[in-house]
Design a protein around this nucleic acid. Structure first.
Lengths: 340, 340
DNA sequence: TGATTTTGCTAAAACGTTTTATATAATTGT
DNA sequence: ACAATTATATAAAACGTTTTAGCAAAATCA
């Protein structure tokens, strides 16, 4: 095998200094007044031996890794993997690579992840945070690394956020059901303190209250899907006659709900109408097709990565520029499951 | 802010050499005969200031980045995102991080990706390769980096493979339909030269031939889902009376097929029975539930990452150890769509 | 012409580790 | 008491870049 190639070996071979090679490679030839002749000589040789700089060395020297950490709840959830796809694509085009991991909504694990990425000196973070990582994220910000929080809102954390209008979305979905004539409308959600869940719940509650109806709220402790289904089964068994419609706060709770309803022989929408937060290919194909509140995945991804990239391109001095909170609208997709 | 902490600043503060600190931190104290007293002193201080080594510097020096590249067709496909989840989890526990990207089955893009990861000095690769990257992968191998190929088989590439038994799986699924009494059985697939697609097709053809039946093969050029649906619609419209059952070679083609069949008012399985390769939550919930050939996602992921980790832990000298080809069985899940 | 500016290039430090070779002090052996 | 060994610690090079500060020659200026 030929000698290891490096900027040094190139310099030696051409009888010039590494400085010059580096300047040429980084497009600073003009600025640094390297003659066109020499530039050509370097470029030709570099081309010839197909030299590629060692990015580790570069990162060590510059302090920039060109890596962005993407920390989501679970990369195998369609919502998150779709986001991962979009974000990676855009980041790639801008010279950044993405390193990912799933938190499983575990705060300790998330804090550990963040620490590891700090050691790796990633340049920025896109995080879907569980409860309990507020201080850690603040510390990250203080260290000068840009952080974009996705899907949820963290109080007392001065950083960029990208989320959807959970409150309004659920409020109007609830109102929609009410307008269709439903009165006993249940809201089934996770027992979670995460902002997006709380906002969805509030939207429901307010709409119910504004219409002088009685709220029916069921909170499921987040466990595995079989457990979830069992809980829903027993809940529906007890309440089936007192409920005319259900709004599920996430698509996977809805799927569990659909399974439970099928087992109980409940017809949708005749016995119980259904609306789910977060669309899913399954909902479109299901019989009957399930009405849903669709999140703008592309727009979420695009805003998140753009926000991060813009911070990354700015001088550190501007970092304290006030945090942005981007709230995107959802799309209500009425389907057969919510008609009368 | 305190001074930047490094192994050097620690050494300076304790009045000892960086060598000593490094030895202690790397657990080589015993071997290098550092006194217990000094070890404790170092450890205590390291603990106190919560020092974490700079992994860039370490990587530069050692030539190991502790990063694995995961290159799949499309990270947003449930099959791949599920694999990504498993692989990341296992890699994480072994001190490796995962960097990912989607190839979109584009050979040029894939080659570019590989080059970039080479620059980043990733330690190993898990790749779902499009056609046309064989030489590049061989070059990778030659450079001493372990590569595990997933989902597909590359001829003339001496590297580890993990895939499922595509041929047998489809052969028996076809036989199953034949045993159910179906005679005019179509196979709808992508027009692709990828090994997994060819194997699935061969399995179908052989079963048809072994039973003296007439093959009906439809190849779809891989385009977007709307196009796919249109193609299937016109195909089914023409052939609806000559087909009793269909085997789809991937889950997303099947979804398009289901949409087309619904539009044409074709009843499953009365008018046409359906089997799909690759299970999908949608299939379980669909009416009727769709029979499928499920791939063992956990096992695929586990085998892939284990294989890679074992190569990574070996000395480079053993690299030429003969490549392994791991072929895993699928699970046939009979559901309502294939009964009579 | 002599001073100044511009042009073209480079030496050397720095980023933060790991590791080889070696120095010194303490201990053991005879 | 002197040699050999062992215990403890370190200096310095190396990994491959980027970048600051500066030098010498050529060009411009007055």
């Amino acid at each position: 095998m030929g000698k290891k190639i490096s900027i040094t070996s190139i310099a030696k071979h051409l009888g010039i200094s590494t400085t010059t090679v580096s300047f040429v490679l980084n497009g600073k030839a003009q600025e640094k007044r390297i003659s066109d002749k020499l530039v050509k000589k370097v470029m030709d040789y570099v081309e010839e031996i197909d030299y590629k700089p060692n990015s580790l060395a570069r990162s060590l020297r510059t302090g920039k890794s060109n890596i962005i950490a993407l920390i989501v709840e679970d990369i195998s959830f369609p919502f998150f993997s779709a986001i991962a796809k979009e974000i990676e694509e855009k980041a790639y085009k801008n010279g950044y690579r993405i390193i990912y991991s799933s938190t499983e909504n575990d705060a300790a694990k998330t804090r550990e992840l963040i620490e590891i990425y700090q050691d790796k000196h990633v340049d920025g973070y896109i995080i879907v945070p569980p409860e309990g990582v507020e201080e850690k994220i603040n510390a990250l910000r203080l260290s000068g690394k840009p952080v974009v929080v996705l899907d949820r809102y963290l109080d007392n954390v001065e950083t960029d956020h990208v989320l959807v209008n959970n409150y309004d979305s659920v409020y109007s979905a609830t109102q929609y059901l009410i307008d269709q004539g439903y009165k006993n409308i249940a809201f089934i959600t996770l027992s979670s303190l995460q902002s997006q869940m709380l906002d969805r719940l509030s939207g429901y509650e307010q709409a119910i209250q504004d219409n002088n109806l009685r709220p029916i709220i069921k909170e499921i402790t987040p466990v595995d899907s079989l457990e979830r289904e069992k809980h829903l089964l027993s809940f529906l068994e007890r309440k089936r006659n007192n409920i005319e419609a259900i709004i599920f706060s996430t698509n996977y709770i809805c799927v569990s709900g659909l399974k439970a309803m099928k087992q109980l022989g409940l017809n949708i929408p005749e016995d119980i109408a259904v609306v789910s937060f977060d669309d899913y290919e399954l909902f479109e194909m299901y019989t009957p097709a399930i009405t849903s509140i669709a999140q703008p995945i592309e727009s979420i991804s695009e805003n998140a990565i753009n926000l991060l990239l813009s911070r990354l391109n700015k001088r550190t001095a501007d970092v304290d520029k006030s945090a942005q909170k981007i709230v995107l609208p959802t799309t209500f997709i009425p389907r057969d499951s919510s008609g009368h």
